[in-house]
Design a binder for these strands. Structure first.
Lengths: 347, 347
DNA sequence: GATAGGAGCTGAACCGGTTTAGTGAATACA
DNA sequence: TGTATTCACTAAACCGGTTCAGCTCCTATC
């Protein structure tokens, strides 16, 4: 049937232990014997049984990823699939697998993590969608499992983080708009419980302040299309209505653009719009969306690699900073309108 | 540290074996002893160690899902995240986990499957994106693992399938267009190597034939935005250019709509367009897209459930048929233009 | 030339479950 | 009343690796 370490030992005329040493590159066997064992193992087509390996070494040889989102929203984010693909590229090179859990119900997230740990499914977690004061840091410490966070948490965290200078991307978008003459540049923020929601807002504020402008055209939203519409409606009703809106993601930007157009505004004639993510479809909007391109594959690869490094050498793993998002200028941004703008009436 | 079956046995004053029988509901212990063991196990907070369990029972307690797509395309499909969430809802009720692999390189798919099996990571696979004459059926038989397919393969398959009457959805879209007076109804097909690409085309052909029309306005594409544009350009250049196009997915429809508009056509004034998937963003296109809504969560849940049933009782698991996609009528479809249409010149 | 030390290897314990063979007592049957 | 069967349970083997303790034999040391 399947060939075990016993078969190899027998075929090579040594004990199980010797085979184990040889196969794991540990001292205890001569070079000669080692070579012979490796040759025999190869001939027999031996592969380690991870279940047995895991049982004795108390390892799972797998990483966990728990995604806590409303499943209806899950499909709207172009980030995840590519991110996961990136994780795979790193894991494939080692004997690691990815165990994915989706926590749909609100309270299910913590249970998900606990279950994976209790069942010994994973050796560590990649924490995405890091939140303000994220309780998962404490949870990881309690569960005694290593982790990697996407973005550095705002609370103290002993875990390495993969970060990106969100600010530079948003700053580039704001500067692009200022070059086009805009000064009333609004921001429709993503859910502020998330670090990336906050940092994008912060970057927008900093960019405006850096140019001597007041960052008062802010509308809170939640990364959803409906939220984007509501926030846009709010901004457009203000007396000092913006001539440009920087959105925290593409979906809100798309919905906002659509809403503005439905209210009779021209994009970019009356209103310039920028997104964030560079979702494939944004290229085919009307007008195509100016947006910020990130590299989710790279995020995935980097975080998995960081996790593997940490498992190999628990101490001294340092944060990784990824290149900033790239501004993709398309037709949804244009010169500031010459005529003064008036607030929209509510529909 | 962690509490094992030995601890429970000792605390309950019985042997390991008795505990195992009691916990697995097997005969061999009296009701009285069984109750006591269960109570003690609960008190001690015992959870089975899946690694140990798996080692002796040769099971992984996990399902595998291998996604073989260009990672750049992965993010464009709203299907997967929700599908995976659906799988989870079924798995969460049992002690099963989902192991996800992404095969990015062309030849990597088979290696992915083999590796998961060789490493004993999974007890079965869910096969998505089933292709014409799909080699994975033979692979599963060779690997001796059970599987569930999304859509019934066209070659003989011993595995249960989760299917949906694609035809009814496409037929509904075609009939909707015919009610609006269209008779030159084209189809931009998805990659025809996929069963779902083929069956959507077949449904479109059947629907036209059923109405006495010739299904000759077909353009092959591959589910990508770029492919959608090329196919649309092809169709619009024909002398008998269509007044409506039924696309095999939303991304191609979005790209096609954008292309048509860029060529000066009005949607739906000159050209009606329907998509497939009901991706969130399609509601916010300009015009919002008429499309077919599927239920990826349900797909996921049903296929995982089917897999679990099969693992529990290898024989006699039957196919499941899911409700047909629902036609969502939005503004991208309208009455057929009154004036005769002329072929577009190449740009 | 006795001795310490280390290299190279073996045998067995161990990880935490499942499962089989076997045992003693109670029960059924003739 | 003696024998066969069933029930409830235990001890031990087993799954396939890792790892520890210990045993040889060879070499270096004084």
């Amino acid at each position: 049937m399947t060939v075990t370490i016993n078969d190899v030992a027998q075929a090579a005329g040594v004990s199980k232990g010797a085979v184990s040493y040889a196969l794991n590159g540990q001292p205890g066997v001569s070079q000669e014997t080692r070579d012979r064992i490796l040759r025999v193992a190869k001939e027999l087509g031996w592969t380690p049984n991870l279940r047995a390996k895991g049982l004795s070494s108390s390892k799972a040889y797998a990483l966990g990823l728990v995604v806590a989102r409303d499943p209806l929203l899950l499909g709207t984010d172009p980030f995840f699939p590519a991110f996961i693909a990136g994780i795979e590229t790193a894991l494939a090179e080692h004997e690691y697998a990815l165990v994915l859990s989706v926590a749909t119900a609100p309270g299910a997230e913590e249970r998900c993590y606990r279950k994976l740990v209790d069942n010994g499914r994973v050796d560590g977690f990649i924490l995405t969608d890091v939140r303000h004061d994220d309780s998962r840091i404490a949870l990881m410490l309690e569960l005694k499992l290593p982790a990697v966070t996407l973005n550095r948490p705002d609370a103290a965290s002993p875990f390495p983080a993969v970060s990106v200078e969100e600010s530079e991307g948003i700053v580039a978008a704001v500067e692009h708009l200022m070059e086009l003459g805009h000064s009333r540049i609004a921001h429709v923020g993503g859910a502020q419980e998330y670090i990336h929601g906050r940092s994008r807002r912060q970057a927008w504020e900093d960019a405006l302040r850096g140019a001597g402008l007041r960052p008062d055209l802010f509308a809170a939203a939640d990364f959803t299309a409906a939220g984007g519409v509501a926030a846009t409606a709010d901004l457009l009703r203000r007396p000092d209505r913006p001539t440009a809106i920087v959105y925290a993601n593409d979906l809100m930007a798309t919905a906002g653009q659509s809403y503005a157009q439905s209210m009779g505004l021209s994009v970019p004639g009356d209103l310039s719009i920028t997104g964030y993510d560079n979702a494939e479809f944004t290229k085919y909007l009307n007008p195509p969306l100016t947006t910020l391109a990130t590299d989710p594959m790279l995020w995935g690869r980097a975080s998995a690699q960081l996790m593997l490094n940490q498992l190999a050498a628990p101490r001294g793993v340092e944060d990784i900073t990824l290149p900033s998002p790239r501004l993709i200028v398309r037709a949804s941004t244009g010169p500031v309108p010459a005529t003064p703008t008036e607030p929209l009436r509510s529909s």
